[in-house]
Amino acid sequence: MTVIASAEGSKPPVAFVRRRQSVAAIIAEVWDARDLVMQFVLRDITIRYTQAVMGFAWALLMPLLIVGAGMMFKVVVATLSNTPLEGSSIASLAAKALPWAFFAGALSTATQSIIGNANLIGKVYFPRESLPLATVIAQSPDLVVGLVMLTIILPFIGVSLTWAALWVIVVLILLVTFTVGCALLLSCANLFYRDVKYIVQVVLNFGVFATPVFFEPQMLGRKGAAIMLDLPLSPFVQAMDMAMVRGHNLLETVAVATRNGPIVVWAPWMLGYAAGSALLLLIVGMLVFRSGSSRFAEMA
C-alpha cells in the first residue's frame, strides 16, 4: 500500500483536545511509579550527604541553625521584657522550628525540582509529580533526626513526654500533605514563570515571622493571637508545641493566662483547619500540576 498525500490537503482542526484526569488516576499513576520516586529521593539524599563535608551531621545543621536564630530572638525579647528564659520555651522553640525547617527546606528545593530536571522532562515520560514529591520526601531525614534528638534532649531540660506526644504523628502526616501540595504548585509555577523562585525565597525568609515559631501567639495580645492562629502554617507549629512539649491533647482548647485575661493558643478547630487546608492544597496542587504538565516539555 502506498499513499501519497499533499501537505496542503487538510485544514487545521478547530476543536482542540483537552484531557482531564481524576485525582484518583493521578494518585494511581504516582503509586505505580513509587520505585522511581524512591530513586529520586535516594539521589537527592545521597548527593546532599556525600557532598557535605560533615556527612550526616548536615541533617542536624539546618534545624540547629533555626533553633539558634530563635534562641537569639528569645534572649533579646527576654532581656527587653525582663522575664527569665525557661528551659521549656527553648524546647517549644525547637519543636516548632523543626516543622518550619522542614517546610522551608522542602519548598526551596521543590520549587526548582522541575526546572532542575529539564533535560529529563524533555526526553523521557514519567509521572512528573515524582520530582517535587521526591524533594519533599528527601527532606524528611532532617526532620526525623531532629525529632529524635529533641525527644532525647527533652527530659534534660525539664520537659517530660506524655501520651499527647503521639499527636505528633498525625500532625506530621498533615504537614507533609500540606508541603507536597505547595511543592506541586510552586514547582509548576516556577517552570512557567522563572522568577517564582525568588518570591518563594523571600516569602520563606519572612514567613517565619508570620508563623508563631520564634514567639508565642499570646505575646501579640488577644486579637493578635487570634489572627496569628488563622495563618496557614500556625496550626502545624502550634500543634507540635502543644503535643510534644506542653503535653496537651489536641482535641481540647488551650488558653494561657496573661495580664489581659486568658488567651486561646490552641483550639480543636485548628486541627480541622490543618487537615482541610492540607487536603485542599494537595488536590488543587495535583490538578493544577497535571494540567500544566502537558506543556512541561515545551517550556523546559
Binding site: P13, A15, F16, V17, R19, I121, G122, K123, V124, Y125, S294, A297, E298
Partner: peptide
C-alpha cells in the same frame, strides 16, 4: 516521537 512517548500532548487528534 515526543507525542508517541507522551512527553508532549497533541493539540488535536487521538
Amino acid at each position: 516521537l515526543k507525542i508517541l512517548n507522551r512527553i508532549m500532548e497533541p493539540t488535536a487528534g487521538v
